[in-house]
């Protein structure tokens, strides 16, 4: 690879440079049309008064940073942001802990036991979100759900007919369970792949030197898989900030939206729901900035691993 890179760098013929730009044109055009243009449009919208009146033909009015100011002073928005961050960090943390634990477990078990675990995780990973969300609603069903049935059998009688989704705290417990269930497989497989790269000799040497299994894990394994943990952890944070579908669909079942909105569903209801496109665009810019910053961190980590 290196040799090729050097050779190509040494003979950058003008023709191949032209050709490479031509090859990039379709992809760049489609990204500009479907993302670049809306992005520019969103910045414009965020600086305009664009509500229902404008939707019916009245020209939009320039209001400068009014939308942002209005959002920044809106206590409800801060509540939504706080809730989103708390949910994101809690679920990302939970996913990382469970995923890493499963990955470590995979290295300690026989091949015959590893297969079912792999298949089970793959199934959970592959399920379309809508199908998963629908099944989990059924599992948590107040009257005929298996989870309430099990809890009652275990002696928690207060769960007979308990509705999980009509109260904010238990709504988020269900949402966290669902999101964790679908996110753990990716973490487990990635970390497991990292763990299998750790040379066994290091552990043997550590064992000979008298280090306990726990110490060997923290002093040998963790530092070696740190890059994978960082990348996967960052991806979890980015992904758990955008849990629109999960929250939106569970809100269908619960009916309480005001107390369970996270940033994505908030923007949707403000924009598409109430037709407040100016305000919704301003709020979108906030979430865009946060994700782009996090993504740049991810790219830097990846670049260090890859040597881009």
């Amino acid at each position: 690879m290196l040799r090729r890179a050097r050779r190509d760098a040494a003979t950058p013929t003008r023709r191949s440079a032209h050709l490479s730009y031509v090859l990039l044109v379709p992809a760049v055009l489609v990204l500009l049309a479907a993302m670049g243009y809306p992005l520019a449009r969103q910045v414009v919208l965020s600086l305009q008064e664009y509500g229902l009146a404008q939707q019916f033909g009245q020209p939009p009015e320039w209001v400068g940073l009014d939308n942002f100011q209005q959002l920044a002073t809106d206590a409800y928005l801060w509540q939504v942001i706080g809730r989103s961050l708390a949910f994101c960090l809690a679920v990302a943390g939970l996913t990382m802990v469970i995923g890493t634990a499963l990955a470590v477990l995979m290295t300690h078990i026989s091949r015959a036991a590893r297969l079912p675990l792999h298949v089970a995780l793959l199934l959970a990973w592959a399920m379309p979100h809508l199908a998963s969300l629908t099944v989990w609603q059924w599992l948590f069903d107040s009257q005929y759900g298996v989870i309430n049935w099990l809890l009652v059998r275990l002696g928690f009688d207060e769960f007979a007919g308990h509705s999980w989704l009509i109260e904010p705290l238990s709504f988020f417990v269900v949402a966290a369970v669902v999101v964790t269930w679908m996110s753990v497989p990716f973490v487990a497989f990635s970390v497991y792949a990292g763990l299998t790269q750790v040379p066994g000799e290091l552990h043997e040497a550590g064992a000979i030197d008298g280090a306990s299994a726990r110490r060997r894990f923290w002093l040998i394994t963790v530092p070696l898989i740190k890059p994978v943990l960082l990348i996967v952890g960052l991806l979890q944070i980015i992904w758990d900030l955008k849990v629109f579908t999960q929250i939106f669909v569970l809100q269908d079942a619960g009916g309480i939206t005001r107390d369970t909105n996270l940033i994505g569903t908030y923007i949707y209801r403000l924009g598409i729901g109430q037709g407040q496109f100016g305000m919704a665009s301003a709020a979108s810019i906030f979430i865009l900035l946060v994700t782009v910053l996090l993504s740049l961190a991810y790219v830097r980590l990846l670049a260090r691993e890859e040597g881009l």
Binding site: G271, A280, L288, V292, S295
Partner: peptide, 24 residues
């Protein structure tokens, strides 16, 4: 820079753009 742009674009959440994509 193209590769980096691609990687960052890939991370853009749906809810960051869907309002203006709808308008578009």
């Amino acid at each position: 820079s193209f590769i980096i742009t691609v990687l960052v674009v890939q991370m853009i959440p749906v809810e960051g753009l869907f309002i203006s994509q709808y308008k578009m």
